[in-house]
Amino acid sequence: MYTIRTFKRVESLEEAYELNQKKTTTILGGGMWLRLGNRQIQAAVDLSGLGLDTIEETDDAFVIGCMTPLRDMEVHPGLNRYFQDMIRDCLKDIVGVQFRNTATIGGSLYGRFGFSDPLTALLVLDTTVEMYKGGMIPLEDFVDMPYDRDILVRVHIRKDGRRCAYQSFRNTRTDFPVLTAAVSSKDGIWRAAVGARPKKAALIAGAAKLPERPEKKDVGALAKEARDTLKYEDNMRASADYRKILTGVLLERAVEAVCGGMDHED
């Protein structure tokens, strides 16, 4: 478990940022992941007094504060109506309701964990993270940026009329996923991401070449591209080979969910 010398409830983001410039300072999200490590934290910065735990719907986006518990997103009617339950689908299997009442979206995205369900899902939406100093950064760029000492303030998901679906495969419910996949389609342009390979989620470039209504063979080609271009590895949950097989299965299911069925050649 971590140790914390001082628990610092900050009154402003500037104060948090200043404190966080020291290597011995750590920003505390829900603290669920941090707690399992053994970091010796001199100052734990608590952002919970800054009102950053809300989900706001504007005309063109959902704006989600970094301290928003995963559970709030999971049960948010507006988010789920707009994104066809994908938000719920990518959160509901994470440990348990009690856990998701505490784990935050800020910690989840800042962590850029390999196993992350929401990272995979939000990659296929038009998602931007709002960093205190770094400004607005598209999630697809943020994923590969090095960990720095900035603060993730809010997550913006644009309401662009996208259709989308999420799939994960778990050996046992509530365990970490063996593989995650998400797809979305807008005006016939597709996006697809695969995560937990166990490397962190990445977009598959060739998704943009999918036809508006992909057939089984098109999705097969997309899965092949993922297998050929993304890095897959073994870990205690599954082998790289198994994950490669699952890639085709999950992508197909997700595309099928978006299209409301798929034309099969045979």
Binding site: F7, R9, L28, G30, G31, D46, Q98, N101
Partner: peptide
């Protein structure tokens, strides 16, 4: 329950 919501007390910092 913290403010009526079920949470894991083993992982919630008491300061919170």
């Amino acid at each position: 329950w913290l403010e009526g919501r079920p949470v894991l007390s083993c992982a919630v910092p008491a300061a919170r």
